[in-house]
Design a protein around this nucleic acid. Structure first.
Lengths: 235, 235
DNA sequence: GGGCTTTGTGTACAGTCGTTCACAAGTTGT
DNA sequence: ACAACTTGTGAACGACTGTACACAAAGCCC
């Protein structure tokens, strides 16, 4: 187990204020305590994601560690979550929001069937880069410790696949495929992209060259799958 | 973080003997201490795998926890491994052995091209079932905490893919594919199978019905990829 | 037999963990 | 305005953590 070095607090033990709001009305700073409702909750989730993005595995995070990163007292955690699993499930929910946003963007931008794959892969890669921590959490969760989180992420992926199948149906691509076969093909697509996710996450954040390689490889994977689907005959 | 219930030791603190060897020469049991060289090392690795198989994530395992499962005193750990990462890397090495065994069996049994996929998938599923803990460790490691373990597993997969490409070349399947394209297709195959691995691990051990569904789905995935590869034209 | 090396053991220490509790401060409802 | 509720705080607990050290027992080499 990799443990962080013993924590040496520079700040005095006590109340922390996360940001200094310059626009706040002038009040007695020493008595200011309350945040926007739900803000601490978000801060805790953000803190967990930050630690995950820093290389830690979600399964190895502890309550104290998260609250420390969030600059909140450990007891505060229980005001918002029952345990780390609970926090993880909430993260899965937000992951769903991120994925839906990605889907929306893909639907809006991918207009020409001939560039469908290049553009979709590009959108995916961009979303992964701008939500790196979220996607790291997703990749970890697929083989994670909590059955519930695992199932949640799996559900998100299946939903994504079925939406993709709907879109392809509407676009009249692969028209000779039965609904079932189209679902299958889309499931394969989503899995392939999800695996590329781990490729992206394994390279350092700014390595454009390697990123291009992954982008090309993923596109070729998808192309091969689509060719297979195009020549597929059910039975 | 999910913690086990506080450990209550039933045995008195002290030396433990893993198995009572009835065929051992009669000796003073109180002075028997030495094991077969390297045995404790194996016991520790086995203990880690057992915990992983029991649902824990490798990243969340601690030295004390592993030694407790191994029925060995915590300090013994350091006689064999520098830390948990070190143990993990050794597990990756053994994982390679398991994978090579699987490859050997596939090569020996898959003689007819027409049944290639069904038989290969069956062999894979069998190996996963008889080495469940190892494969769970593999699935976890793909998005794990340790970069080194992650890279190790990735390397094993790439080696597997390149061996598969060699076999397909020798079998004169997909003869029109360039070496590069064949490698690509095999990489996609290995990834697809690896993802099915997480499916298998997510169902309960004896669920034959669900297992059959996964087997069928994986076979269909592979068939689609091969059809795609068959109609692939490089460029 | 005597020394050297390897392996397992017991003790110990300082630090971290999850969780409980009583209390303070702010928010909301009336 | 006052009560009820929600949220943040600090101290405290017992258990567990990784790791260091000195020592004992067994195998190995000469």
């Amino acid at each position: 187990m990799i443990r962080a070095a013993p924590h040496v607090s520079i700040l005095p033990a006590g109340r922390y204020t996360r940001v200094i709001d310059l626009h706040a009305p002038i009040t007695d700073m020493t008595t200011q305590k309350r945040r926007r409702p739900g803000e601490t909750r978000e801060i805790l989730m953000e803190a967990a994601l930050t630690l995950v993005g820093r290389g830690r595995h979600f399964a190895s995070l502890g309550i104290r560690e998260v609250t420390r990163q969030a600059e909140v007292v450990p007891t505060s955690f229980y005001r918002h979550f029952r345990n780390m699993d609970d926090l993880g499930l909430t993260l899965v929910d937000e992951l769903g929001v991120v994925l839906r946003g990605m889907m929306r963007e893909a639907r809006a931008n991918v207009l020409h069937a001939d560039k469908l794959m290049d553009e979709s892969v590009a959108i995916f890669v961009n979303h992964v880069q701008s939500n790196r921590n979220f996607f790291t959490f997703m990749a970890q969760g697929l083989a994670g410790e909590s059955q519930a989180i695992q199932q949640g992420i799996r559900n998100e992926m299946q939903f994504f696949a079925s939406e993709l199948a709907n879109d392809l149906r509407n676009l009249r691509l692969l028209p000779h495929l039965s609904d079932e076969d189209l679902d299958m093909a889309c499931e394969l697509v989503v899995r392939t992209v999800a695996f590329s996710l781990t490729d992206i996450l394994s390279i350092s954040a700014g390595d454009e060259e390697e990123l291009g390689r992954i982008r090309r490889q993923t596109t070729r994977f998808l192309r091969m799958i689509f060719i297979g689907a195009d020549h597929w005959q059910s039975g």
